[in-house]
């Protein structure tokens, strides 16, 4: 098991290194000079040069990559062109909105999807099952940002139960902050939960057709006992895989949803940075998002091995 995790960690490191190189290269070939953006097009050449030197923009690309990547490793993302503050500090502030939002959404997704999917599978072809399948079919088709707008219309504008947007900050207390995150999290979670519930249902149905389920029944286990003791854990393996893949959608969703609710998270940060051509911020946030997808998938794979003894010995 340790050797397995070790090998995976190594491939994780390689993946991250390649990812950072790609992000750097793509951002590098982009047209547009940040120095010009900051100072305006009619700035004097020597001022431009001085600014480039200040931000290290005059050095060759490989050197700048190494400096950037080395900085990332030490938690130093460089200085923001527009704010002139360390990017790390900017990101850290914004993270406290995006991360809780993603986590709450993920928790909600799981808590809804797994029981609902399992219930539909256990009561296959019943009215419950048909209801779940219809609801999830619609749920998959709903864009999360539109769903968010509908939630605002109903719960914020009409009923006035929850805020329509903005974020009071965690200093204002946990409850007001959480209240601000409820609607965004629900908007993110429901479409994802629809997908996951369907995966859960079909995975459990597949598992219930396995030979060992029949063996368990022949031992004298009731249907319910068989599902609980033998089928569920096996059925969760593919669900886990899909959850790992969903994380990248969830992340993208978070960035978009933050725009609906005017939440000061990473999503807002990256869009502001794009319009202000604050490339160092864009680069760092993109890298952070990619890294988190990679890390989550790494965790899923390790979790996979923890659940499934067959994988522990695999290369």
């Amino acid at each position: 098991m340790l050797a397995y995790v070790g090998r995976r960690l190594l491939s994780l490191a390689v993946t991250l290194a390649i990812a950072s190189a790609i992000v750097f290269t793509v951002m590098e070939i982009l047209p547009g000079d940040p120095a010009e953006v900051m100072l305006g097009t009619n700035a004097r050449p020597d001022t431009l040069a001085a600014l480039r030197a200040q931000y290290g923009l005059d050095r060759p690309a490989p050197e700048r990559y190494l400096a950037w990547a080395g900085g990332l490793l030490q938690g130093d993302m460089g200085l923001s062109y527009t704010y002139s503050v360390p990017v790390t500090q900017l990101v850290a502030e914004r993270m406290w909105v995006s991360l809780p939002l993603a986590l709450i959404a993920l928790t909600l997704t799981t808590l809804i999807a797994i029981p609902v999917g399992a219930l539909a599978a256990a009561k296959r072809n019943s009215a419950t099952d048909v209801g779940v399948m219809t609801a999830t079919q619609v749920g998959i088709a709903v864009p999360n940002f539109w769903f968010a707008m509908l939630l605002v219309l109903v719960f914020a504008i009409t009923l006035r139960w929850l805020p329509a947007g903005g974020f009071p900050g965690w200093k204002a207390g946990a409850w007001p902050a959480l209240k601000a995150l409820v609607l965004p999290a629900v908007a993110l979670a429901l479409p994802q939960a629809s997908i996951l519930a369907r995966v859960m249902r079909s995975s459990l149905l597949d598992t219930l057709g396995e030979d060992y389920v029949r063996t368990a029944r022949a031992k004298g286990l009731t249907r319910a006992q068989t599902v609980r003791r033998h089928a569920l854990r096996n059925a969760l393996i593919p669900v886990l895989t899909i959850m790992g893949l969903q994380f990248s959608f969830l992340l993208a969703g978070t960035i978009i949803i933050e725009n609906v609710f005017f939440l000061p998270g990473l999503g807002r940060l990256v869009f502001q940075a794009i319009t202000q051509r604050d490339l160092i911020v864009v680069k760092s946030v993109v890298m952070l998002l990619v890294a988190s997808v990679v890390v989550v998938n790494f965790l899923v794979e390790v979790g996979y091995a923890a659940v499934d003894p067959r994988l522990r010995r695999r290369v």
Binding site: T15, I18, A19, L245, S248, F249, L251, A252, I255, I256, V286, L289, V290, V293, V294, N297
Partner: peptide
């Protein structure tokens, strides 16, 4: 590897 880059990014 490409899977690590959502369409939005």
């Amino acid at each position: 590897f490409v899977f690590a880059f959502p369409a939005l990014i």
